[in-house]
Amino acid sequence: MSDLLRTYGRGLAGLFIALTAVWILVMILVPQLFMIERSLWNRTVSTDISLRIDRAYNEVSLLELDSQNATEAERQELAERISALRAQIAEWEAEETDPPKVYSLYNYTRMSALHVRIFVKTIFYSALVTILALVVCYPIAYAVAQVATPQRAAFLLLGLIIPYAINELLRVYAWLMILDYQGVLNTMLSWIGVTDLAAGQWIPFLESPAAVFVAMVYAYILFMAFPIYNTLETLDRNQIEAARDLGASTWRIHWRVAIPHAKPGIAVGCIMTFMLSASSYSVPQIMTRGTSGDWFSQTIYRQFFESNNWNQGAAYAFTLLVVCILFIFLMMMIFRVGIRDIAR
């Protein structure tokens, strides 16, 4: 705070702090609090309320018939009973049309066995995507940061950035065209006799989760590569040369020198890739087209916009958020880094 005040002065620093506070409040806290509040209540209508209303109307009709042949005193008594019944009917009808909110954990406990399997599968698959992205991106980041000349490093970074000038949906559709039943890959395999497109004999790549893995790794590669590159770029090459002079193998140099130095970047890359994969809707929706099962994000979408059950959808979304937060702490524990290390 003091550094901010010294650098920009009270006026500009106060403006920065106010804008940050508004952004945190409007974009983070309010939506999350609304989602949590929505997930904690539900409206339940008694199954026999319609029957009670019908019986009350019947009783009112009978009392009105009785009042026609009753004495003046009896009519007054019957009128009071009819008035009380009509008030009770109005209360029941209001409850039927606008049931009261009941706060409980009901929305969290009514997740079906199928949705639990989808949730576990999504978390497992997101972890696999994260591992694949790490395996692919670490060598690229190391090569750009430590091995390549400045000119080659610039070309490699440009090659990573250029695809992101295209919309994510178009990049995912590009992989759909490559892996489709009569796509580029099956066409190339038909040239060497592995598949026969004319006879409908092709390899169903899209029916495998691997198709989603490939598209996700490609879609989120920068979110893994850049944090690792940023940390490896600060690694003194003299440490690598010293390890090599002392007889360390390439594997040992990476294990004892490069990877420990890159821990904050690896942790950030894993966190970002996992969270993007777990919450991705467009990639599994486009790549699977319903042939290899839903991801949990698709289940959440259906709860909101197809079932119109916003309370259940909010509970599902908050459950996924909690798992992503726990994953952040897991990465911090595994790589032994703190919030300051991640934020650098």
Results as ranks from 00 to 15, higher is better:
Q239G: 04
E233P: 01
T250L: 08
Q239S: 08
N238C: 05
R252Y: 06
A242C: 07
T234K: 03
T234P: 03
E241Q: 13
A215C: 13
A243N: 11
M224R: 03
F226N: 06
Q239K: 12
W251A: 10
P227R: 12
L246M: 14
I253P: 00
H254L: 07
R252I: 07
T231M: 12
D245R: 05
A225G: 07
I221Y: 03
I240E: 07
D245H: 05
T231Y: 04
Q239C: 06
I253C: 03
I253L: 04
I221C: 05
A225N: 09
S249Q: 01
Q239V: 06
N238Y: 08
E241L: 08
L235K: 00
G247A: 07
A215G: 15
R252G: 06
P227N: 10
W251L: 13
H254E: 08
E233I: 07
L222Q: 10
A215I: 05
D236N: 14
Y220R: 02
M216E: 15
T234Y: 03
I240L: 15
I253V: 14
R252P: 03
I240A: 01
G247F: 02
F223G: 03
R237F: 08
L222K: 10
T250E: 14
N230R: 15
I228W: 01
I221E: 04
A215W: 02
R252H: 11
Q239P: 05
A215R: 01
F223S: 05
I240Q: 02
A225E: 10
F226I: 15
D236H: 08
N230M: 13
G247H: 01
A248Y: 00
A225Y: 10
M224V: 10
I221R: 00
M216L: 15
S249P: 00
A242E: 13
D245T: 08
D245N: 14
R244K: 08
M224Q: 07
A248N: 02
M216W: 05
M224E: 05
Y220Q: 12
H254T: 08
T250N: 09
L235E: 01
L246P: 01
V217Q: 03
A225W: 06
A219S: 15
E241D: 14
M216A: 14
A242W: 07
R252S: 13
M216N: 13
I221A: 09
T231V: 08
L235P: 01
L222R: 04
I228K: 01
N230T: 13
S249W: 00
R237E: 10
A243V: 05
G247I: 02
L246K: 04
V217N: 03
H254A: 11
M224D: 04
L222Y: 08
L222N: 14
L222W: 11
R237D: 10
T231E: 14
F223L: 13
Y218C: 10
A215M: 10
M224C: 11
E241A: 04
I253Q: 02
D245S: 13
G247V: 06
E241N: 14
W251S: 10
W251I: 13
A242Y: 09
Y218I: 07
G247N: 03
H254Q: 09
F226T: 09
R237V: 10
A248F: 00
L222P: 04
L235N: 01
